[in-house]
Design a protein around this nucleic acid. Structure first.
Length: 367
DNA sequence: CAATCGTGGTT
DNA sequence: TAACCAAGATT
């Protein structure tokens, strides 16, 4: 690949720094050097808008003031704090990394890019961010903002994140980085992308580098970066069984690895495909459950819909009254648990289940 | 390496 | 509305 003239790099950086002074952006983690806090913010911000990340960052910092405190917390408590943010494997990997650092690295956060990169849940972007922000190492971040800025600035006609094009963008980013001030440069670049060189309605009229910008000069700002081909969404139908007994216990299960919402809790569910009729499945489930059913369908909810990145979930909830959930056949040997109804407010649920509980039972949780 | 993993903001 | 996409990582 051709190298970028030094003059271009220098002029870009100078304009970028001037822009950052003209458009200050205050964020809770800005200028932060504590690697724990930098790491925490970057994990929370993966595929997450800054405005939402701030809310969870404040909650996590307030609850866990050190990596030792985080490492010592229970999985369920941390998942509860993460509830609603999505991409829950981040939460699981965050806990793994915290415990690894505390238990095996004597609490010392790794201080180089290559060592940081080994942490669970830390990929090239996050490692570069932590290395530059917390340790001043000259590593160029490559996130959605950076893809967009350089796709436009250099007129790169490649789809971002495709494995083949990533190395091209990384090469550009590496050359453009101000190696004397990596933290300042990375921060300003992402701020610029997030607020000025935006996906739509980019503020080209007040952009100081537009004279150098390929997309602006060729009137292709709206076309770049190239869009990813849209994904097909699998449709799934979940029938949740809200089973309660006379002691106000209910059945929950912890969702396993390998499917959505791993690590969160759920009511037992019957997944209905086209060929399976819910009523028959329910009859089979109950007859094999060991439960003494008092009222097989005490109530049924409306149908909830939730669109995920790769799936569209249709969910309905069916209230079932039994004598005692402790008779459930799989309780002892599987991920199923008997939980007091009054404690459901402390359980981490997927959005759809939390929504159902609020719709139907909000008065019981003192929200 | 292309598919998978959530949820909500924005237009 | 529906598409786009957000400080990506993992498999």
């Amino acid at each position: 690949m051709n190298s970028i003239p030094k003059e271009i790099c220098d002029r870009f950086a100078a304009h970028l720094y001037k822009w950052a002074e003209d458009y200050p952006r205050q964020l809770p983690w800005k200028g932060e050097r504590d690697p724990y806090r930098v790491w925490l913010s970057e994990i929370l911000l993966q595929q997450t808008q800054v405005s939402r990340g701030i809310i969870y960052y404040d909650a996590f910092v307030s609850r866990f003031s050190s990596i030792e405190a985080l490492a010592a917390a229970s999985d369920d408590d941390v998942f509860k704090l993460w509830e609603g943010l999505g991409y829950y494997s981040r939460c699981r990997n965050m806990l793994k990394a915290a415990r690894l650092i505390v238990n095996e690295l004597d609490g010392r956060f790794p201080s180089t890019y290559s060592e940081i990169l080994k942490l669970p849940g830390v990929g090239p972007y996050t490692a570069a961010a932590i290395a530059s922000f917390a340790f001043g190492e000259p590593k160029a971040v490559l996130d959605g903002n950076v893809y967009r800025i350089y796709a436009r600035f250099f007129g790169v006609d490649l789809i971002p994140n495709a494995a083949k094009s990533k190395s091209h963008f990384q090469n550009l980013a590496d050359q453009m980085l101000d190696r004397e001030n990596p933290a300042r440069f990375n921060q300003a670049l992402m701020d610029f992308g997030a607020t000025h060189c935006t996906p739509r309605n980019a503020k080209c009229e007040t952009c100081a580098v537009r004279d150098l910008c390929f997309a602006f000069q060729h009137n292709r700002v709206e076309e770049l970066p190239r869009k990813k081909t849209p994904i097909k969404k699998r449709e799934r139908r979940f029938a949740y069984l809200v089973i309660t007994d006379e002691s106000d216990q209910t059945l929950l299960l912890k969702r396993p690895e390998g499917d959505i919402w791993a690590g969160l809790y759920s009511f037992p569910l019957i997944e209905c495909d086209e060929n399976h009729i819910f009523e028959k499945e329910l009859e089979t489930f109950l007859s094999q459950s060991g439960l003494e059913v008092l009222n097989s369908v005490q109530h049924s909810s409306k149908q909830y819909k939730q669109t995920l990145s790769h799936q569209k979930i249709f969910g309905s909830f069916y209230g079932i009254r039994v004598n005692s959930v402790s008779h459930y056949r799989l309780l002892a040997e599987t991920a199923y648990e008997s939980v007091a109804w009054s404690s459901l407010g402390d359980v981490a649920f997927p959005r759809m289940i939390r929504q159902y509980l609020e719709d139907r039972f909000s008065s019981l949780f003192e929200f």
